[in-house]
Amino acid sequence: MIGCLLIHGFTGSPFEVEPLAEFLQDRTDWKIVVPTLPGHGETLELKGIKHIEWIEHAESELKALLNTCDEVYVIGFSMGGLIASYLSVKYDVDKLVLLSAAAYYINAKQLLKDIGNLIKEGIQGNILENELYKRYKFKVTQTPILSTYEFRKVVRIARPLLREVSIPTFIAQGKNDGIVPPKAAKYIYETISSKKKNLFYSPEAKHLICHSQDKHELFDKIYQFLQIE
């Protein structure tokens, strides 16, 4: 049996990767696991939660798959991508997929463009219907400042280990990402030691790459990558 662990991002939930999880579930008989990291989910309760708790929770889910599956793939989105890369170095993972992995974060140029669009829509009276506005407002109002430091600790732990990633790796990044700049994907691609590695840029995607308009092209490429022997 093949097991596949999908890890969502900071302040996120399984919603961020569910379209990909469902795509894979529909086409395979794999054991698909999409955990919710401590303090995360539809309602955030991050106060007092430490970065090590996020890593350990993902680690425990991975161990369970390794104990029951012949092969295990790990897919990580944003902060989840860093956790996934960390786990791929520490455990016997077969393949790795990194989506908008936060090796760098905050693409100021795109973020300013997004904010400009929000202001424009606000003038037009459409801002309350804007998904980006809702998401940013929710995260800004619900995320304790100390939690952002915990996120940065994950980055500090995982980034130095990227050079030790040696398994087949698929890296994907949205060109319009306002949170993680496109250079993050290029940095990861050039840093990891994997001999088999793919780099894909989605021309349409913002940060939530699994919810982009061209997501099915991405999903097809990931599926093909995971199917290759």
Rank of each mutant, 00 (worst) to 15 (best):
G3M: 02
C4I: 15
G9K: 04
F10V: 05
T11R: 03
S13K: 10
V17W: 00
V17N: 01
E18K: 15
E22F: 05
E22C: 05
F23T: 04
Q25L: 11
Q25T: 13
Q25C: 09
R27H: 10
D29G: 14
G39W: 02
G39A: 10
E42C: 06
T43F: 11
T43R: 13
E45S: 13
K50W: 06
H51D: 08
I52N: 05
E53C: 08
E53K: 13
A58R: 00
E71W: 02
V74K: 01
I75S: 01
G76S: 07
F77K: 00
G80A: 11
D92F: 05
D92L: 09
D92R: 14
D94K: 06
Y104I: 06
Y105T: 12
N107V: 12
A108T: 14
A108P: 02
L111M: 12
L111E: 06
L118A: 15
Q124V: 07
N126A: 12
L128I: 09
Y133S: 09
Q142P: 04
T143E: 12
P144D: 14
R152L: 15
P160H: 10
E164A: 05
E164M: 09
P168G: 05
T169P: 05
F170E: 03
F170D: 00
Q173F: 05
Q173A: 07
N176I: 08
D177I: 07
P182Y: 09
K186M: 11
I188G: 03
S194A: 14
N198L: 09
S202C: 06
H211W: 11
Q213H: 13
H216W: 07
I222F: 01
